[in-house]
Design a protein around this nucleic acid. Structure first.
Lengths: 174, 174
DNA sequence: TCATGCTTTCATTATTTACCGAAAATTCGG
DNA sequence: CCGAATTTTCGGTAAATAATGAAAGCATGA
């Protein structure tokens, strides 16, 4: 009975890790990074590099690079265990916190650069005359305003406490 | 004087197209597709395939495939001009409409599949006993709840009229 | 200060993705 | 039907990205 449970759990975990990795590629995150994140999110204990390598059949270099990146993002913490020279890693498990971290990163990669471009193009054409130039400038301005608005919304929402976000959401969904 | 304006406008457009293309890669959209979209968004008239090819120095196959994909997304419309056999294309220019289209597409590619995985993994482990199994199931459930919530929010917001969205936003930002 | 165990780096290789360009299919006027 | 003007498809190639594995770097305790 116990064995059957273990078996099912193991299977579900494996499925989760594999699928989450595949999903990562859709999100512009590399497969290994997403897999490691999934692995650590569902691990009851912090894992060391070799454990991660073995679980995912990944090379040392790959495991290392992606663990580092996850730590960089703040999705994973490094843990030191006294009397053990290895580095251990554990994932942030709170979904709201995970969300705010990912939102911040995506904003940095996707929204901020767009804003910079739009700003520049709007600025460079703001004094030009002629219908075409004015149409172009207006289009840039509209895009800029919208993206800037999205940027502010993103900041605002990610800095909310979970409870407040839920409260707000119920207003929107309700 | 007129020449200088034309020059500046042309430069700004070129910059916009090039940079928007580069940005596209960050968004998981291929460079050419993003460039064509930028080109059409800032074109005062519908363009035919050859015009697009020439503007971007892209091959026919590439231009064709990406125009098709943009039409698929709904970001670009095909235009028929009487007495001309060529297909012409023009972009959706309203920013709110563009946003809702992109949001829908990203939801389809990023949120829906995640939900499917989480659903499956939560379902498969809901009857298991043991602390580990329960912890795993809870983690899946929390993720599922959150992603499902995000999904609903996304639907709700993208189906809003622009005016209503702004009104809502002012509540959040204000 | 050497040996050991672990971390980090990096040149190479593999995989994935986008792109080209020519050939095939389609459309339409004559 | 034929032929010219397009659109569409597709096999091969190039570019970008990710992964490998071996070697170098660092700490630590004997």
């Amino acid at each position: 009975m116990k064995g059957a449970t273990d078996q099912k759990l193991l299977q579900a975990k494996e499925e989760f890790v594999a699928q989450w990795g595949a999903l990562g590629t859709q999100w512009g995150i590399n497969r290994t990074m997403a897999q490691i994140h999934a692995l650590l999110m569902t691990s009851p204990h912090p894992m060391c590099t070799d454990e991660v390598m073995e679980s995912l059949a990944a090379s040392r270099g790959n495991a290392h690079a992606n663990l580092k990146e996850l730590v960089n993002w703040g999705l994973v913490r490094m843990i030191v265990i006294k009397g053990d020279r290895r580095d251990f890693y554990e994932a942030e498990k709170d979904v709201w916190h995970i969300f705010t971290i990912i939102a911040r990163e995506r904003k940095r990669r996707e929204i901020d650069p767009a804003l910079a471009i739009l700003n520049k193009c709007a600025e460079e054409t703001k004094d030009l005359k002629g219908v075409e130039a004015i149409a172009f400038h207006n289009q840039m301005k509209q895009l800029e305003d919208f993206v800037s608005f999205a940027s502010k919304m993103s900041d605002r929402v990610s800095s909310m406490r979970h409870g407040f976000a839920i409260q707000l959401a119920s207003k929107i969904l309700g």
